[in-house]
Amino acid sequence: MIPNAVTALALCFGLTGVSMAIGGKWDQALACIIIAGVLDGMDGRIARLLRAQSKFGAELDSLSDNIAFGTAPALILFLWSLKAEPRFGWLAALALAVCCALRLARFNARLDAAEQPHKSAGFNTGVPAPAGAGLAFVPIFLWLISGSEWTRVWYVVMPWTLFIAALMISAIPTYSWASIRIRRDWRLFALAGVGLLGAALIVAPWHTLLVVALLYLGSLPLGLASYARVRRRRASLLAPAPEPAAPAHGH
């Protein structure tokens, strides 16, 4: 019950974000999606700690992610900017929602697959749904920080939305929590960094989230290079040893 309740709470926060957007409360709408992302990161860990994993919970988690990080962000972006050009703007919003659903369907279809090269190496395939929602909100972060209307015009927001939708269904390897290894002598610094991040989110939330989003974007080419190194290392380990050369015979 407990992890499923957390998942249902994340779903409710996602839908509440849409309600806030309808009322023009953009900062509260984004806060609801962010809280949904935090809850989404907690439910799976709670289920593992309580040994309460279930097929029902996995399906509920996928449906919650689709609404909170696909449908809700698409509607928020449409209401905030894309409705200025209803035809093309709605297509971009649909693309974000549909690509999120396709990404989650691909993830579910591969749960029982024996061979998952990215997952076995500690990587995700494509940008995860919560990260995709956060990246899609970058124009709103800029608008909340600067108040500049150029970040809100539909012909700026629409290509960005399509770009993020494409990243979600792409096959590029991206870093996952499983691929992060912190050395023992760096753990205190990591804990201090987490504390400072929490303080920054309270003091300057939109600046902090913008920096986090840009750092994540910057990690995408690093993930590609890191996975390429892993593949080369695996290939060298699996390659057959060269046969010894035959001794030369004299005449």
Score class of each variant (00 low, 15 high):
143 W>H: 13
116 Q>V: 00
152 R>H: 12
116 Q>Y: 00
102 L>E: 02
198 G>E: 02
107 F>P: 05
123 F>D: 00
104 L>G: 05
89 G>E: 08
147 G>A: 14
134 G>R: 11
96 L>Q: 09
191 L>H: 11
200 A>I: 07
123 F>H: 04
143 W>F: 15
125 T>R: 14
170 S>F: 06
110 R>A: 09
141 F>M: 04
106 R>Q: 08
149 E>Q: 15
97 A>L: 10
128 P>E: 11
141 F>K: 00
182 I>R: 03
139 P>V: 05
139 P>T: 06
158 M>E: 07
122 G>T: 06
110 R>G: 01
191 L>I: 14
125 T>K: 13
111 L>E: 02
147 G>S: 12
131 A>Q: 05
177 W>V: 07
203 V>F: 08
100 C>R: 09
144 L>V: 02
184 R>C: 00
185 D>R: 14
106 R>C: 11
145 I>P: 06
137 F>V: 09
118 H>K: 10
164 I>P: 05
167 L>T: 01
104 L>N: 06
118 H>D: 05
190 A>H: 15
153 V>S: 15
184 R>V: 01
132 G>K: 07
208 T>S: 15
177 W>P: 00
119 K>I: 15
87 R>I: 15
121 A>K: 04
142 L>W: 10
155 Y>V: 08
101 A>P: 07
194 V>Y: 06
187 R>W: 02
204 A>D: 14
188 L>G: 09
170 S>C: 09
145 I>G: 10
110 R>D: 00
171 A>W: 01
204 A>W: 15
118 H>S: 04
182 I>F: 11
158 M>F: 04
134 G>T: 10
162 L>M: 11
209 L>K: 04
133 A>F: 09
177 W>T: 06
107 F>C: 06
120 S>P: 01
129 A>T: 10
89 G>W: 12
175 Y>T: 01
136 A>W: 07
167 L>W: 04
86 P>I: 03
166 A>G: 05
187 R>P: 00
204 A>C: 15
137 F>W: 06
145 I>D: 05
102 L>N: 01
92 A>Q: 01
185 D>P: 11
124 N>S: 11
172 I>F: 14
127 V>E: 07
134 G>K: 10
143 W>R: 13
